[in-house]
Design a protein around this nucleic acid. Structure first.
Lengths: 132, 132
DNA sequence: AAAGATTGAATCATCAATCTTG
DNA sequence: CAAGATTGATGATTCAATCTTT
């Protein structure tokens, strides 16, 4: 549901969205591609191809590293940041509706705590999830 | 983890396993392909290609419907049933270990109840998950 | 030799089109 | 025309190989 929403309203796949979100939290909206891959739990080649799309739409740009020519950065553009802002507003609201409709605040906390015990579980915090 | 285990120990993808499991619970180990697709949350073409593999290894066979020539059945073979039995023993044990290591019985029940409220959640029962 | 990035081949899913049968 | 099944083309992802730089 959430994925289809992002796609139809903003033209973003869930991975596009996550990539923009991660970049938006990085220093200067810029990250090494290899670090972005790790953050998105994708391979290096997966990131190359994901960014191909975001570069084509002008949401992300390449930048090169002066001190190490092996490194390429992915940089969030103003256009990308704007798109993320709009998409994030909708997405966070949709998530909120989906969960608040089904769980009380206490239940949400319990659910988050239980799921956080699974292997490789991401932070159950949620504070980092908005593009604010 | 669970998926990699199935693949390396028994040569089954998680979808292969699920297909054999669903067939094993059907009347005579046989189902219409379209119904199998629905049960596996796959498209019709996805099922065709999934069964291609299971038919190649002799775990599933085709059968035709006498009363409606449009229909093709997927039939679990004895070989498929044996493989499922072996894989299931390992798989269920692995799931058990994974969860019992992290949750008390009460916590498991709570987790199952909470998750069952999500849209399209499958049965939280678990009774149907073993190939026994 | 190792690290970062990209490319080509393979896998697995989907959709759209097609074929057969009802 | 609708239903069941398959096939071809496409998209997303991975792995293995390659290229450049350290």
């Amino acid at each position: 549901v959430l994925s289809a929403d992002l796609q139809s309203r903003h033209g973003l796949s869930i991975n596009d969205y996550e990539a923009l979100l991660v970049l938006s939290h990085a220093e200067d909206g810029r990250m090494r591609r290899v670090d972005l891959a790790a953050a998105l739990v994708l391979t290096a080649s997966g990131v190359t191809r994901l960014l191909d799309g975001l570069e084509a739409t002008g949401c992300v740009e390449k930048a090169f590293c002066e001190s190490d020519a092996r490194v390429t950065y992915a940089v969030l553009t103003p256009k990308g940041r704007e798109l993320l802002g709009r998409a994030s507003a909708d997405h966070v609201a949709a998530i909120g509706a989906l969960f608040e409709q089904r769980y009380s605040p206490e239940e949400l906390e319990t659910l988050a705590e239980l799921l956080s015990r699974l292997p490789d579980a991401a932070s159950a915090d949620g504070a980092e999830c908005s593009a604010g």
